[in-house]
Design a protein around this nucleic acid. Structure first.
Lengths: 120, 120
DNA sequence: CAGGATCCATAACGATACTG
DNA sequence: CAGTATCGTTATGGATCCTG
């Protein structure tokens, strides 16, 4: 087991996790995989999320370059969020995560001590 | 955009995140990708981690079936952790995460407001 | 409708001392 | 060496009210 660059570099797993981590980010991305959505549309589609957390997470995802925010100047405001082209590079990984996650859900493992289910 | 089963099932992304989520789990798994390690060995390889969190995370990962704990009965104790065969099913996904994470680190995105670097 | 501002609860994490 | 126990801190998320 050779000394790898692990010795000196930050953990890339964490690098990605830091982007998709947050109580609802996984769910938000999951929803946006189907296409752009408006803020309220997203909110309704994730019943348990609060206004605050939705906005917060959306902003962070935008900051990280994963999402794009399209605002149509008008009253009342109309904002649409979509996965950016950079965010798209993450999609295959997200899908792999989905696949494993789905199997894990079925595998009905003893300890599901967590955040699930996020959508009921 | 058809109505998918998303309407009724928990989010599979979260399902997987719930397993690898935790301040140091990503890093721990990342290290174990190279092979089994002893508790203290792991600890030394992740300087900033505290005893408590290491043990906690290891236990959770074992509970979730991702890790295996091999204890050799002797004094002083010798415990080795390794990725279980179930955990192995997750490895390709972890690797995909690593690949994206590495690119993301290089992409030097503006907001790296997070947990990084976890290994200095 | 989108989102800012406040206030609060608590889960997650960290430091440290201790035990078989 | 591996793991417990206790305690303090802080980050995260939640509830609510408010505004252009």
């Amino acid at each position: 087991m050779p000394v790898s660059k692990k010795e000196v570099s930050p953990c890339p797993i964490d690098a990605m996790l830091s982007v998709i981590d947050g109580r609802w980010k996984g769910t938000i991305l999951w929803r946006l995989l189907d296409g752009p959505m408006r803020t309220n549309e997203l909110r309704r589609s994730i019943p348990q999320i609060t206004e605050r957390m939705l906005i917060r997470h959306l902003q962070e995802l935008v900051q990280d370059g994963i999402l794009e925010r399209h605002e149509e100047k008008q009253v009342p405001p109309c904002v649409r969020y979509s996965i950016s082209s950079y965010g798209m590079t993450m999609v295959p990984v997200l899908e792999a995560i989905c696949v494993w996650g789905r199997r894990h859900l079925e595998t009905s493992h003893p300890s599901k001590r967590e955040r699930l289910p996020s959508i009921t």
